[in-house]
Simulated assay, not measured.
Amino acid sequence: MPKHLVFHLAVTTAGAVIGLTAVSSTAEAAAPPLTHPRIVAHFDRPAGQVAESVIVRPNGSADVGLILSRQVAHVTLGGRVEVVATMPLPADGGVNTPGTGSAAVTGIERTGDGTLYFLYSAGDEYLTGLWKLRPGGKPERVAALPAASFLNGLARDDRTGNFYITDSTQGGVWQVGSHGGTAKLWAAGEDLAPTHFFGANGVKVHDGAVWISNIDRGTILRIPLTDTGTAGPHQVMAAGLDSVDDFAFTGRGDQLLAALNVPSELVLITPGKADRTVLDESDGLQNTTSVAVDGDTVYVASGALTTGGDANLLTAHLGHHD
Protein backbone atom coordinates (compact mmCIF):
# COMPACT_ATOMS: atom_id res chain seq x y z
CA MET A 1 0.00 0.00 0.00
CA PRO A 2 1.50 3.41 -0.94
CA LYS A 3 2.33 5.14 2.35
CA HIS A 4 1.66 8.63 1.04
CA LEU A 5 -1.77 7.54 -0.22
CA VAL A 6 -2.68 6.32 3.25
CA PHE A 7 -1.51 9.60 4.75
CA HIS A 8 -3.47 11.76 2.33
CA LEU A 9 -6.67 9.79 2.86
CA ALA A 10 -6.25 9.91 6.61
CA VAL A 11 -6.16 13.71 6.63
CA THR A 12 -9.10 14.14 4.26
CA THR A 13 -11.68 15.09 6.88
CA ALA A 14 -13.72 18.03 5.68
CA GLY A 15 -16.05 18.21 8.69
CA ALA A 16 -19.53 17.29 9.79
CA VAL A 17 -22.21 16.29 7.30
CA ILE A 18 -24.74 19.00 6.56
CA GLY A 19 -27.85 19.23 4.43
CA LEU A 20 -28.23 20.20 0.80
CA THR A 21 -27.58 23.85 0.13
CA ALA A 22 -30.06 23.97 -2.71
CA VAL A 23 -33.56 22.57 -2.30
CA SER A 24 -35.02 20.80 -5.30
CA SER A 25 -38.53 21.71 -6.36
CA THR A 26 -39.21 18.03 -6.93
CA ALA A 27 -41.59 16.60 -4.34
CA GLU A 28 -39.67 14.06 -2.28
CA ALA A 29 -40.97 11.01 -0.53
CA ALA A 30 -40.18 10.57 3.15
CA ALA A 31 -36.56 9.63 3.70
CA PRO A 32 -36.38 5.84 3.38
CA PRO A 33 -34.12 3.93 5.73
CA LEU A 34 -31.88 1.08 4.67
CA THR A 35 -32.74 -2.27 6.18
CA HIS A 36 -31.31 -5.81 6.18
CA PRO A 37 -27.68 -4.91 5.44
CA ARG A 38 -25.51 -7.91 4.79
CA ILE A 39 -22.05 -8.51 3.38
CA VAL A 40 -22.40 -10.57 0.20
CA ALA A 41 -18.75 -10.81 -0.87
CA HIS A 42 -15.28 -10.44 0.59
CA PHE A 43 -12.30 -9.39 -1.53
CA ASP A 44 -8.69 -10.47 -1.04
CA ARG A 45 -7.45 -7.31 0.66
CA PRO A 46 -3.88 -8.63 1.31
CA ALA A 47 -3.60 -9.26 -2.44
CA GLY A 48 -4.53 -5.64 -3.17
CA GLN A 49 -8.21 -6.18 -3.96
CA VAL A 50 -9.31 -2.76 -2.71
CA ALA A 51 -12.92 -2.35 -3.82
CA GLU A 52 -13.35 1.00 -5.58
CA SER A 53 -16.41 0.93 -7.86
CA VAL A 54 -19.52 -1.16 -8.45
CA ILE A 55 -22.06 -1.57 -11.24
CA VAL A 56 -25.06 -3.92 -11.12
CA ARG A 57 -25.98 -6.43 -13.81
CA PRO A 58 -29.64 -7.08 -14.77
CA ASN A 59 -29.65 -10.35 -12.79
CA GLY A 60 -28.51 -8.64 -9.59
CA SER A 61 -24.89 -9.75 -9.69
CA ALA A 62 -22.24 -7.03 -9.81
CA ASP A 63 -19.01 -5.96 -11.44
CA VAL A 64 -16.36 -4.26 -9.35
CA GLY A 65 -13.16 -2.31 -9.99
CA LEU A 66 -10.31 -3.27 -7.63
CA ILE A 67 -7.65 -0.59 -7.22
CA LEU A 68 -4.29 -1.96 -6.13
CA SER A 69 -4.66 -5.36 -7.78
CA ARG A 70 -5.52 -3.56 -11.07
CA GLN A 71 -8.44 -5.91 -11.62
CA VAL A 72 -12.02 -5.99 -12.82
CA ALA A 73 -14.03 -8.66 -11.03
CA HIS A 74 -17.52 -10.13 -11.24
CA VAL A 75 -19.35 -10.92 -8.01
CA THR A 76 -21.83 -13.74 -8.59
CA LEU A 77 -25.21 -13.99 -6.90
CA GLY A 78 -23.62 -16.52 -4.57
CA GLY A 79 -20.88 -14.08 -3.57
CA ARG A 80 -18.05 -15.68 -5.53
CA VAL A 81 -15.44 -13.20 -6.77
CA GLU A 82 -14.33 -13.98 -10.33
CA VAL A 83 -11.51 -11.88 -11.80
CA VAL A 84 -12.32 -11.09 -15.44
CA ALA A 85 -9.34 -8.84 -16.23
CA THR A 86 -6.00 -7.83 -14.72
CA MET A 87 -4.36 -4.76 -16.22
CA PRO A 88 -0.65 -4.75 -17.11
CA LEU A 89 1.82 -2.80 -15.03
CA PRO A 90 3.59 0.11 -16.72
CA ALA A 91 7.35 -0.11 -17.18
CA ASP A 92 8.01 1.78 -13.94
CA GLY A 93 5.77 -0.55 -11.96
CA GLY A 94 3.23 2.23 -11.44
CA VAL A 95 5.30 4.38 -9.06
CA ASN A 96 4.70 7.46 -11.22
CA THR A 97 0.93 7.15 -11.14
CA PRO A 98 -0.29 10.62 -10.06
CA GLY A 99 -1.55 10.90 -6.51
CA THR A 100 -1.13 7.26 -5.53
CA GLY A 101 2.19 5.91 -6.76
CA SER A 102 0.32 2.75 -7.70
CA ALA A 103 -1.43 1.90 -10.97
CA ALA A 104 -5.18 1.66 -10.35
CA VAL A 105 -8.41 0.40 -11.87
CA THR A 106 -11.18 2.75 -10.75
CA GLY A 107 -14.60 3.70 -12.23
CA ILE A 108 -16.72 1.11 -14.02
CA GLU A 109 -19.80 1.15 -16.28
CA ARG A 110 -21.73 -1.46 -18.25
CA THR A 111 -23.74 -1.24 -21.47
CA GLY A 112 -26.75 -3.31 -22.45
CA ASP A 113 -24.72 -5.77 -24.53
CA GLY A 114 -22.67 -6.72 -21.47
CA THR A 115 -19.58 -4.70 -22.39
CA LEU A 116 -17.76 -3.29 -19.38
CA TYR A 117 -16.04 0.09 -19.54
CA PHE A 118 -13.53 1.02 -16.86
CA LEU A 119 -10.77 3.49 -16.05
CA TYR A 120 -7.10 2.72 -15.66
CA SER A 121 -4.54 5.21 -14.34
CA ALA A 122 -0.89 4.21 -14.61
CA GLY A 123 1.16 7.38 -15.10
CA ASP A 124 1.81 6.08 -18.61
CA GLU A 125 0.60 7.59 -21.88
CA TYR A 126 0.07 4.15 -23.41
CA LEU A 127 -2.05 2.78 -20.57
CA THR A 128 -3.95 5.63 -18.88
CA GLY A 129 -7.46 6.02 -20.23
CA LEU A 130 -10.90 4.52 -20.79
CA TRP A 131 -10.90 0.79 -21.50
CA LYS A 132 -13.58 -1.65 -22.56
CA LEU A 133 -13.99 -5.37 -22.02
CA ARG A 134 -16.42 -7.36 -24.12
CA PRO A 135 -17.85 -10.56 -22.64
CA GLY A 136 -15.19 -13.24 -23.03
CA GLY A 137 -12.75 -10.77 -24.58
CA LYS A 138 -9.63 -8.92 -23.55
CA PRO A 139 -9.36 -5.30 -22.40
CA GLU A 140 -8.77 -2.69 -25.11
CA ARG A 141 -8.24 1.02 -24.66
CA VAL A 142 -10.86 3.12 -26.43
CA ALA A 143 -9.73 6.58 -25.30
CA ALA A 144 -6.32 7.81 -24.20
CA LEU A 145 -6.13 10.34 -21.36
CA PRO A 146 -3.14 12.30 -20.02
CA ALA A 147 -0.56 10.36 -18.03
CA ALA A 148 -0.71 13.19 -15.47
CA SER A 149 -4.34 12.31 -14.70
CA PHE A 150 -5.70 10.10 -11.96
CA LEU A 151 -9.00 9.02 -13.47
CA ASN A 152 -11.53 8.20 -10.80
CA GLY A 153 -15.28 8.23 -11.48
CA LEU A 154 -16.99 7.06 -14.67
CA ALA A 155 -20.59 7.71 -15.76
CA ARG A 156 -22.42 7.14 -19.01
CA ASP A 157 -25.26 9.29 -20.34
CA ASP A 158 -27.87 6.76 -21.51
CA ARG A 159 -29.39 9.31 -23.89
CA THR A 160 -26.24 10.09 -25.87
CA GLY A 161 -23.88 7.28 -24.92
CA ASN A 162 -21.24 9.82 -23.91
CA PHE A 163 -18.94 8.99 -21.01
CA TYR A 164 -17.96 11.46 -18.27
CA ILE A 165 -14.71 10.87 -16.40
CA THR A 166 -13.50 12.69 -13.31
CA ASP A 167 -9.83 13.64 -13.12
CA SER A 168 -8.93 13.81 -9.43
CA THR A 169 -5.41 15.20 -9.77
CA GLN A 170 -6.01 17.78 -12.51
CA GLY A 171 -9.43 18.72 -11.19
CA GLY A 172 -11.73 18.37 -14.16
CA VAL A 173 -14.26 16.25 -16.03
CA TRP A 174 -13.43 14.63 -19.37
CA GLN A 175 -15.99 13.66 -22.00
CA VAL A 176 -15.56 10.70 -24.35
CA GLY A 177 -17.97 9.73 -27.11
CA SER A 178 -20.02 6.56 -27.05
CA HIS A 179 -17.52 4.65 -29.20
CA GLY A 180 -14.40 6.09 -27.63
CA GLY A 181 -11.96 8.31 -29.51
CA THR A 182 -10.48 11.63 -28.47
CA ALA A 183 -11.24 12.78 -24.94
CA LYS A 184 -12.08 16.43 -24.45
CA LEU A 185 -12.05 18.44 -21.25
CA TRP A 186 -15.75 19.08 -20.57
CA ALA A 187 -15.58 20.96 -17.25
CA ALA A 188 -12.92 22.46 -15.01
CA GLY A 189 -12.61 25.07 -12.29
CA GLU A 190 -11.66 25.64 -8.69
CA ASP A 191 -14.68 23.73 -7.38
CA LEU A 192 -13.46 20.59 -9.19
CA ALA A 193 -9.83 20.99 -8.17
CA PRO A 194 -8.10 19.31 -5.23
CA THR A 195 -6.92 21.28 -2.21
CA HIS A 196 -4.21 18.85 -1.09
CA PHE A 197 -4.91 15.37 -2.50
CA PHE A 198 -7.86 14.60 -4.81
CA GLY A 199 -10.57 16.82 -6.25
CA ALA A 200 -13.34 15.59 -8.58
CA ASN A 201 -14.17 12.01 -7.66
CA GLY A 202 -17.60 10.40 -8.05
CA VAL A 203 -19.78 11.22 -11.05
CA LYS A 204 -23.35 10.50 -12.16
CA VAL A 205 -25.57 11.72 -15.02
CA HIS A 206 -28.97 12.61 -13.58
CA ASP A 207 -31.93 14.69 -14.76
CA GLY A 208 -30.15 16.62 -17.50
CA ALA A 209 -26.97 17.30 -15.55
CA VAL A 210 -23.65 15.80 -14.56
CA TRP A 211 -23.19 15.55 -10.80
CA ILE A 212 -19.68 15.35 -9.31
CA SER A 213 -18.31 14.90 -5.81
CA ASN A 214 -15.09 16.57 -4.66
CA ILE A 215 -13.42 14.50 -1.95
CA ASP A 216 -11.07 17.25 -0.70
CA ARG A 217 -13.74 19.95 -0.59
CA GLY A 218 -16.50 17.70 0.76
CA THR A 219 -18.99 18.85 -1.87
CA ILE A 220 -21.34 17.52 -4.52
CA LEU A 221 -21.79 19.70 -7.61
CA ARG A 222 -24.45 19.80 -10.30
CA ILE A 223 -23.36 20.89 -13.80
CA PRO A 224 -26.24 21.16 -16.30
CA LEU A 225 -25.90 19.71 -19.77
CA THR A 226 -26.79 22.51 -22.18
CA ASP A 227 -28.72 22.01 -25.41
CA THR A 228 -25.40 21.79 -27.24
CA GLY A 229 -23.95 19.31 -24.74
CA THR A 230 -21.54 21.77 -23.14
CA ALA A 231 -21.23 22.36 -19.39
CA GLY A 232 -23.56 24.89 -17.81
CA PRO A 233 -22.91 26.89 -14.64
CA HIS A 234 -21.70 24.88 -11.65
CA GLN A 235 -23.98 24.63 -8.62
CA VAL A 236 -22.95 23.29 -5.20
CA MET A 237 -25.75 20.96 -4.08
CA ALA A 238 -24.22 19.59 -0.88
CA ALA A 239 -21.30 20.56 1.33
CA GLY A 240 -19.51 19.51 4.51
CA LEU A 241 -19.37 15.85 3.46
CA ASP A 242 -16.30 14.32 5.10
CA SER A 243 -14.14 12.68 2.38
CA VAL A 244 -17.12 12.10 0.09
CA ASP A 245 -16.31 9.49 -2.55
CA ASP A 246 -18.97 8.01 -4.82
CA PHE A 247 -22.74 8.57 -4.64
CA ALA A 248 -25.93 7.28 -6.25
CA PHE A 249 -29.48 8.53 -6.69
CA THR A 250 -32.28 6.57 -5.02
CA GLY A 251 -34.87 7.10 -7.76
CA ARG A 252 -36.72 9.71 -5.70
CA GLY A 253 -35.88 13.00 -7.40
CA ASP A 254 -32.56 14.45 -6.28
CA GLN A 255 -32.34 12.29 -3.17
CA LEU A 256 -29.03 10.45 -3.06
CA LEU A 257 -26.81 8.16 -1.02
CA ALA A 258 -23.21 9.32 -0.52
CA ALA A 259 -20.26 7.14 0.47
CA LEU A 260 -18.01 8.86 3.03
CA ASN A 261 -14.59 7.23 2.87
CA VAL A 262 -12.71 8.03 6.08
CA PRO A 263 -15.73 7.83 8.45
CA SER A 264 -16.81 4.55 6.77
CA GLU A 265 -20.40 5.76 6.43
CA LEU A 266 -23.23 5.87 3.93
CA VAL A 267 -25.32 9.04 4.22
CA LEU A 268 -28.81 9.68 2.85
CA ILE A 269 -29.18 13.23 1.50
CA THR A 270 -32.71 14.44 0.81
CA PRO A 271 -33.40 18.00 -0.39
CA GLY A 272 -34.91 20.07 2.41
CA LYS A 273 -34.26 17.46 5.10
CA ALA A 274 -31.45 16.74 7.54
CA ASP A 275 -28.80 14.34 6.31
CA ARG A 276 -29.01 10.89 7.78
CA THR A 277 -26.34 8.24 8.33
CA VAL A 278 -27.94 4.97 7.22
CA LEU A 279 -24.96 2.58 7.34
CA ASP A 280 -21.67 2.70 9.23
CA GLU A 281 -18.81 0.57 10.58
CA SER A 282 -21.21 -1.46 12.70
CA ASP A 283 -22.76 -2.74 9.45
CA GLY A 284 -19.38 -3.74 8.02
CA LEU A 285 -18.31 -0.59 6.15
CA GLN A 286 -14.56 0.07 6.03
CA ASN A 287 -13.42 3.07 3.94
CA THR A 288 -16.65 3.25 1.97
CA THR A 289 -15.81 3.88 -1.69
CA SER A 290 -18.86 3.42 -3.89
CA VAL A 291 -22.59 2.87 -4.01
CA ALA A 292 -25.09 1.70 -6.63
CA VAL A 293 -28.89 1.52 -6.49
CA ASP A 294 -30.82 -1.14 -8.39
CA GLY A 295 -34.53 -0.81 -7.69
CA ASP A 296 -34.93 -1.31 -3.95
CA THR A 297 -31.49 -2.86 -3.49
CA VAL A 298 -28.45 -0.79 -2.55
CA TYR A 299 -24.92 -2.08 -3.20
CA VAL A 300 -22.08 -0.58 -1.17
CA ALA A 301 -18.38 -1.30 -1.71
CA SER A 302 -15.75 -0.84 0.99
CA GLY A 303 -12.07 -0.70 0.10
CA ALA A 304 -10.46 -0.95 3.56
CA LEU A 305 -7.57 1.02 2.09
CA THR A 306 -6.48 2.71 5.30
CA THR A 307 -8.23 0.47 7.82
CA GLY A 308 -6.47 -2.59 6.41
CA GLY A 309 -9.50 -4.67 7.35
CA ASP A 310 -12.24 -6.26 5.30
CA ALA A 311 -12.72 -5.08 1.73
CA ASN A 312 -16.24 -6.15 0.90
CA LEU A 313 -19.48 -5.69 -0.99
CA LEU A 314 -22.64 -5.15 1.04
CA THR A 315 -26.28 -5.01 0.04
CA ALA A 316 -29.23 -3.47 1.85
CA HIS A 317 -32.93 -2.91 1.21
CA LEU A 318 -34.08 0.60 0.36
CA GLY A 319 -37.37 1.10 2.18
CA HIS A 320 -40.37 3.22 1.18
CA HIS A 321 -41.18 4.67 4.58
CA ASP A 322 -39.42 6.21 7.57
Rank of each mutant, 00 (worst) to 15 (best):
S282D: 06
G112S: 10
E190Q: 11
I39W: 06
L89Y: 01
G93C: 08
M237Y: 05
P224I: 05
D275W: 13
H317T: 09
Q255W: 09
I108F: 01
D63R: 12
P2L: 00
R276W: 01
V105T: 13
A41N: 01
I223Q: 13
T13D: 09
R70Y: 09
A316N: 03
V75E: 00
A122T: 05
A238E: 05
V95L: 09
H317R: 08
T195C: 13
F198Y: 08
L9I: 09
K132A: 09
L268K: 04
D44W: 01
G229T: 07
K204V: 02
V84R: 07
V176P: 02
G253A: 07
F249K: 10
A22P: 15
V11G: 10
Q286V: 12
K204F: 06
Y164N: 10
F247E: 02
V75T: 03
A147H: 13
W131A: 12
T270F: 00
D63L: 09
A14T: 11
F197E: 06
R70V: 15
S178F: 12
T166G: 00
A10W: 03
D242K: 14
H179S: 04
S264N: 14
P88I: 04
G65V: 04
D322G: 04
F197R: 04
S168Q: 05
G284P: 10
L268T: 07
R252V: 11
H74L: 04
A187T: 15
G93L: 05
E281H: 04
L68Q: 07
I39T: 10
T106G: 05
R141L: 04
A258D: 03
I223W: 10
D322I: 00
A209G: 12
P224F: 01
R252Q: 10
D167H: 11
K138V: 07
D124W: 01
L130M: 13
R141Q: 07
R80P: 14
G218E: 15
A41D: 05
E190M: 01
P135F: 00
V23Q: 14
G208D: 11
A188K: 15
V84C: 00
K132R: 15
V205Y: 08
Q49H: 06
A91W: 01
V72T: 08
D246H: 08
G60R: 13
D227V: 06
E281P: 00
A155N: 06
G101D: 08
N162A: 13
A193H: 06
V72C: 02
D92I: 03
G60H: 11
D216V: 03
I108M: 13
L116D: 06
H4S: 11
T76I: 06
A147F: 00
G60D: 08
A183H: 01
Y126P: 07
R141T: 02
P194H: 11
V50G: 08
S302W: 06
V236M: 06
L256V: 00
S282R: 11
N201K: 11
T97R: 13
A200I: 01
G251K: 10
F7H: 14
L305D: 09
I67C: 07
T182Y: 04
D167T: 10
A193W: 02
A144Y: 10
K273R: 15
L20V: 07
V300M: 03
I165C: 02
G101R: 02
D294E: 03
G319I: 05
L241K: 02
L151P: 03
